[in-house]
Amino acid sequence: MGGDQANSEAGEELIAAHIARFREVPGGLLPLLHAVQDSLGCIPAGAVPAIAGALGLSRAEVHGVISFYHDFRSEPAGRHVLQICRAEACQAMGSRELEAHVKARLGIDYGATSADGAVTLEAVYCLGNCACSPSVRLDDAIHARVDAARVDALLAELTTGAAP
């Protein structure tokens, strides 16, 4: 409990610092939301009233922006985020089979987190790596020409922490 409260106080301080940085920036809501999510892993529902108040918006408006964009989340993701490109160039190179393989291996669908909390699986529509499809993004690293064996190796590295 004590730890949670300390976390939540630290989170509130961070949110207040981000608000102070972006409240006077024209159109500053998106950069503010990015900053909050980058530092806390999500935009907690509890942060919405403070953000709305500081920017002179209603809570509904802030919620509307958060829910509009695929990137923003109200709950933390797993320790890692795996995005599989579902767009056409990757489809032409077998991404439908790749996504079926990953869903079966992790036992989850898009938008869910594996039972051990290691990986959140997301769909993405183009990583700009379309000459060497199919592509996945694991956290901030993009991988090209990914087949089932390659994605298995990437996922295995996450659990063992070992280099390939």
């Binding site: 159109g27 950069p31 920017l55 964009y69 695929h70 990137d71």
Partner: peptide
Amino acid sequence: LRSGAGAYICGEETALLDSLEGKRG
């Protein structure tokens, strides 16, 4: 430099402008 947030429609110029203004795209 401003970052989008994963919405394809923000490549449409007027949706992009709304997004830059801090709104839904």
